[in-house]
Measured scan of single mutants.
Amino acid sequence: GLPEGWEMRFTVDGIPYFVDHNRRTTTYIDPRTG
């Protein structure tokens, strides 16, 4: 799974992105792969 505090969501286009609730940021880069 994802690191603690992270969540995976999808855009309206079906593109996955990642929400970091710890820092309240979003990124398209998987936190597991950097």
Rank of each mutant, 00 (worst) to 15 (best):
H21P: 06
I15N: 07
F10W: 14
G1F: 11
R9L: 13
T25G: 07
G5T: 02
W6P: 01
D20T: 04
T33S: 11
F10Y: 12
G5F: 06
D20V: 03
D13H: 12
G1N: 13
Y28I: 12
M8I: 14
V19N: 02
M8L: 10
D30K: 00
G5S: 06
V19R: 02
R24G: 15
F10Q: 05
N22K: 13
T11W: 02
R23T: 15
Y28M: 15
G34D: 15
R23N: 15
M8D: 00
G14K: 06
G34W: 12
P3M: 04
L2T: 03
T33Q: 13
N22H: 10
P3Q: 03
T25S: 09
T33H: 09
D30G: 00
F10H: 10
Y17I: 11
G5Y: 05
D30S: 00
R32V: 09
H21N: 10
W6N: 02
R23Y: 08
H21I: 13
I15E: 09
T27V: 06
G1D: 14
F10I: 10
H21D: 08
D20G: 01
T25Q: 10
D13Y: 08
D30V: 00
T26H: 13
Y28S: 14
H21V: 12
F10T: 08
G34I: 15
T33R: 06
V12G: 10
D30W: 00
M8W: 01
T33M: 12
L2D: 03
T11S: 09
P31M: 01
G5Q: 05
F18P: 03
G1L: 13
T33F: 09
E4A: 15
W6I: 06
Y28A: 11
I15D: 08
T25H: 10
L2P: 04
F18N: 00
V12N: 12
L2N: 02
N22R: 10
R23S: 15
I29G: 03
V19I: 14
L2Q: 01
T11K: 01
M8K: 06
R32H: 06
V19T: 06
T11Y: 02
T11A: 05
G5W: 05
T27S: 13
V12T: 13
D20H: 08
G1H: 12
V12Q: 13
I15Q: 09
N22E: 11
Y28W: 15
P16K: 10
W6T: 02
D13M: 09
P3V: 04
T25P: 00
D13K: 11
L2W: 07
M8A: 07
Y17K: 04
D13Q: 11
T25E: 15
Y28E: 12
T25D: 08
Y28K: 10
G1I: 12
M8F: 04
R32E: 07
F18T: 00
W6K: 01
R24A: 13
R23A: 13
T33W: 12
D13R: 09
V19F: 14
T25M: 13
E7F: 04
P16T: 06
V19P: 04
F18R: 00
Y17R: 03
T27R: 04
I15S: 06
I15H: 09
R24E: 13
G5D: 04
N22Q: 11
P31Y: 02
H21K: 09
G34N: 14
I29A: 06
R9W: 08
E4L: 12
V12A: 14
R24W: 10
F18L: 01
T26M: 15
P16W: 05
R32S: 08
F18E: 01
I15M: 08
D20L: 02
Y17T: 05
Y17H: 03
P3W: 05
G14V: 00
N22L: 14
L2F: 08
I29P: 07
R32D: 07
I15R: 10
Y17D: 05
R23K: 13
G1S: 14
W6R: 01
F18K: 00
R32N: 07
T26D: 09
Y17P: 02
L2V: 03
E7Q: 07
E7W: 01
E7G: 03
W6D: 01
P16Q: 09
F10K: 06
R23E: 14
D13I: 05
F10V: 08
Y17A: 03
P3E: 04
T27K: 03
I15A: 06
R9F: 14
D20A: 03
D30Q: 00
G5K: 05
F10P: 00
T27G: 07
E7P: 00
D30T: 00
D20I: 04
R9M: 09
R32T: 06
I29K: 09
T33N: 12
P3F: 04
L2E: 01
G1R: 13
D13E: 12
T27N: 06
H21Y: 09
V12K: 14
E7Y: 06
R24V: 09
R23M: 10
R23Q: 13
V12D: 13
R24K: 15
T25L: 15
Y17V: 12
L2K: 01
P31N: 01
T27L: 02
P16A: 09
M8P: 02
I29R: 09
P3S: 05
G34P: 13
D13P: 01
D20S: 07
H21G: 08
V19S: 02
V19A: 03
G14A: 03
R23L: 11
T25V: 14
P3D: 06
N22M: 13
T11I: 01
R9I: 06
Y17Q: 06
R24S: 13
E4W: 10
H21L: 11
P16L: 09
I29L: 11
H21W: 10
P16R: 10
P3I: 03
T26A: 09
E4Q: 11
Y17W: 01
P3A: 04
G34S: 13
D30M: 00
T33A: 09
E4T: 10
D20N: 12
Y17N: 04
T26V: 15
R32P: 07
W6M: 03
L2Y: 03
G14Y: 03
R32G: 05
E4S: 12
G1Q: 14
G14T: 00
N22F: 10
P3N: 04
T26I: 15
V19W: 07
E7K: 02
I29M: 07
H21F: 08
T11L: 03
T27I: 11
D20F: 06
Y17L: 09
G1V: 13
I29V: 11
P31E: 03
T11R: 05
R23F: 09
T27W: 02
T11Q: 06
P16E: 06
P31W: 01
M8Q: 09
T11F: 01
T33D: 12
R24I: 08
F10D: 00
T27Y: 04
D30E: 02
P31F: 02
T33Y: 08
P16M: 12
V12Y: 11
D30N: 00
E7A: 04
E4Y: 09
T33G: 12
T25W: 11
R9E: 05
T11D: 15
F18G: 00
E7I: 05
R32Y: 06
Y17S: 04
G34M: 13
T26E: 15
